[in-house]
Simulated assay, not measured.
Amino acid sequence: RFRNYVRDFWRGNTHGVADLAQRLVGSPDIFADRAPEASINFVTAHDGFTLRDLVTYDVKHNGANGEDNRDGTDDNRSWNCGVEGETEDGHVNALRHRQAQNLVATLLLSNGVPMITAGDELGRTQQGNNNAYCQDSPISWLHWDTAQEWGDLTDLTRRLLQLRAEHPVFRRTAYRHGEPLLDPTGQPTGRKNLAWFGGAPHEMTADDWHDGTRRTLGIYLAEDHPERAQDAAFLVWLHAGSDPIRVALPDGPWAHTYTVVATSAQEHELPGDKLPAGSHLDLPGRCVVVLQVD
């Protein structure tokens, strides 16, 4: 369920963002009677396309398997970004890198247990083969010579794993439902431990949730452990639309300022300085942006 929806979201084949919200918080619609760790999240696995191939091929290319391309699934939910297979087109390759980073970011920022297929963080390819179990050849081997070309993907993967390790808010052991956030003395802060934003300065409305054309979602996560060492909070934006969009950064009790700490966007596309709460942020097309609350 996680794999199929996340793939569809980033290739533009979903209805609204309500399902995305469920996947981001550990799929409570499926595992409500269990802990979030019951949700084993993945975008790719040992069979099927690799992450790089997921953004490079629309269809399988399994001719080398000797079955006239009949083997392997046809339900890949992939998008080649405009050209089938490898290309020297710089614009297409930049989009592929962005989409691969978006998929990894969604995986690593979601509650539950993330499963990463070895080599995906290095841009591993099986040349469009989605059923390489029968291959003991360069098609199925993990090649380290892709590391430099796909270093941006490796760097973002490393950064997000670091954030996940340092901040328990990204790996909660129990579901949250937007309960009021209390300070260490038990007094309300005016914030919640989980909140959803759609680009306006207020939380998502019922109409926002039912908008089938919506391609943008913001999730606010605040650490709520009574004995927490710090009031860590983050606002994560996921924008799958092809065009830039302007979003409001919640103010009042939500934050004083925001700082970009990880993103799939290019460095020049986002401000490097602290952003005042109540200001606006222009999200580039097809990107994930992680803002730390100050």
Results as ranks from 00 to 15, higher is better:
Val261Gly: 04
Leu249Tyr: 02
Val260Trp: 05
Ala248Tyr: 00
Ser264Gly: 09
Pro250Thr: 11
Asp231Glu: 14
Thr257Asn: 11
Asp243Asn: 08
Ala265Cys: 10
Ala262Asn: 10
Gln266Gly: 09
Ala248Ile: 03
Leu235Tyr: 03
Ala232Phe: 05
Val261Ser: 08
Thr263His: 03
Val261Ile: 15
Ala240Thr: 11
Ala229Ile: 10
Leu235Thr: 02
Ala240Trp: 03
Ala248Lys: 09
Ile245Cys: 06
His256Ala: 14
Trp237Glu: 03
Pro244Phe: 00
Val247Cys: 02
Gly252Pro: 02
Ala265Glu: 04
His256Thr: 15
Phe234Glu: 09
Pro253Val: 10
Ala265Lys: 06
Ile245Lys: 06
Arg246Tyr: 01
Val261Asp: 04
Leu249Phe: 02
His256Glu: 14
Gln230His: 13
Leu235Ser: 02
Ala232Gln: 08
Ala229Cys: 05
Thr257Gly: 03
Pro253Glu: 11
Leu249Thr: 06
Arg228Pro: 02
Leu235Phe: 04
Ala262Arg: 06
Asp251Arg: 12
Leu238Ala: 12
Glu227Thr: 14
Val260Gln: 08
Val247Gly: 01
Pro250Asn: 08
Gln230Cys: 07
Val236Glu: 01
Ala229Gln: 14
Ala248Phe: 00
Ala248Gly: 00
Leu235Cys: 03
Val247Pro: 02
Leu249Arg: 05
Ala232Val: 12
Val261Met: 08
Ala229Met: 12
Val236Gly: 00
Glu267His: 13
Ile245Met: 07
Pro253Cys: 10
Asp251Ala: 15
Leu238Pro: 03
Gly252Trp: 03
Ala229Pro: 01
Ser242Gln: 10
Phe234Asp: 07
Arg246Asn: 06
Gln266Met: 13
Ala233Asp: 03
Tyr258Leu: 10
Ile245Asp: 04
Asp243Val: 08
Ala233Arg: 15
His239Pro: 00
Val236Trp: 01
Ser264Ile: 10
Ile245Trp: 00
Thr263Ala: 11
Arg228Ala: 12
Ala248Arg: 13
Thr259Arg: 15
His239Lys: 11
Val260Phe: 07
